[in-house]
């Protein structure tokens, strides 16, 4: 373990804590939790959802303490709260900080509940790395994405992730901090592609959960995953990303994990919708944020704004927000004209 390295994690939700535990195998970790009660609980009980925090994890007193003690920072905060967090953090951040976020969501400068797809500007929709660059003096920014279900990481099961950044140094520092015998860390220079892979897969996961909730099996799921990925590539392309990232660990890899696991929050949202529950009730029940629901709203705004067609996204949005019955949605999708197989490789 490296003695003079100390890294910070912001956000002690289940994934933030899982990352903190992973990092703690290689160095000391300062974990910051915004909610004072939750932080006090963590300090006392040192458990998150029945999993013990690693002994190298210390609960931080303040963001300032994290900034002044750690050069490497991992914010793992839901996208809806990310901007407030980063604004609070900003006064303490310097250009020598390296920040690798692990938030699979988008930020909007407008109110997504009231926005009109016609009048929005795509510039007002930002990835988390863009938000970090906009709100802080940090330049060396990266993101972490991959099939990393928090519970499995807490259980110390083997897994891999991708760190993307335009700086080689961000990738190598992230690798040095995270890599263990059970955890592999790949690198990528395409940060936009990796971020969008992580973001867009969420609504496909909701759709997969719904399909399973209707009682359908593996053939249907495989179809949904494959065509879901194709749709992700098209949307990503429209937003300026390269297709390559979608075909890697953070794309298809993460898609398979979230689309096949009842442990995934997004998957369970879809599953319970298909079983007839109401979205509001499900969200209240889950407690934590299901990024997929937010992504779906933003994704629909983007697609409508571009006047593009993304049948899966548009249909699943109707199911969630306009009470379209899942059975009818499925019928519609199955009737949708199909193109050549794997045509997205040529775009």
């Amino acid at each position: 373990m490296s003695q003079n390295r100390r890294v910070g994690v912001i956000g002690a939700g289940s994934f933030g804590s899982a990352i903190a535990n992973l990092l703690a195998e290689n160095q000391k970790v300062l974990l910051y939790e915004h909610n004072k009660d939750a932080a006090a609980f963590l300090r006392k009980e040192r458990t998150v959802r029945n999993f013990a925090l690693h002994q190298n994890v210390e609960i931080a007193e303040s963001l300032e303490q994290v900034a002044s003690n750690c050069f490497l920072l991992f914010p793992v905060v839901p996208s809806a709260y990310f901007k407030n967090m980063i604004i609070d953090f900003s006064p303490y951040l310097r250009p020598d900080h390296i920040m690798i976020h692990a938030t699979k969501g988008l930020h909007c400068e407008f109110d997504i509940e009231k926005a009109d797809a016609k009048t929005i500007s795509l510039k007002e929709i930002k990835t988390m790395s863009e938000l970090i660059l906009q709100e802080t003096g940090i330049v060396r920014v990266g993101c972490l994405a991959g099939p990393n279900l928090a519970l499995e990481i807490m259980e110390k099961q083997p897994a891999a992730t991708v760190i993307a950044s335009r700086f080689n140094e961000v990738i190598s520092e992230g690798q040095a901090a995270l890599r263990t015998e059970r955890f592999q860390v790949y690198g990528s220079k395409d940060i936009l592609g990796i971020e969008l892979s992580g973001v867009l897969k969420n609504y496909v996961a909701i759709a997969c959960g719904a399909l399973n909730g209707l009682g359908y099996g593996e053939n249907a799921r495989a179809l949904l995953i494959t065509r879901g990925m194709a749709e992700m590539i098209y949307i990503g392309k429209a937003l300026g990303a390269d297709k390559r990232a979608f075909l890697g660990i953070a794309g298809i890899g993460d898609l398979i994990a979230t689309c096949t696991s009842p442990k995934s929050r997004n998957y369970s949202v879809g599953y319970r919708i298909a079983k007839g529950e109401k979205l509001d009730d499900i969200l209240r029940d889950i407690g934590e944020v299901a990024e997929g629901v937010r992504t779906l709203k933003i994704g629909k705004l983007i697609v409508d704004h571009l006047g593009a067609s993304a049948p899966l996204l548009q249909t699943i949005a109707k199911v969630l927000f306009e009470d379209l019955a899942m059975e009818r949605a499925l019928k519609f999708l199955m009737r949708y004209p199909v193109s050549a197989d794997a045509e997205y490789l040529d775009i």
Binding site: F71, P95, D96
Partner: peptide, 10 residues
Amino acid sequence: INVKNYFLTN
């Protein structure tokens, strides 16, 4: 800001 910070790692 201090420009030197751009060239520092840990």
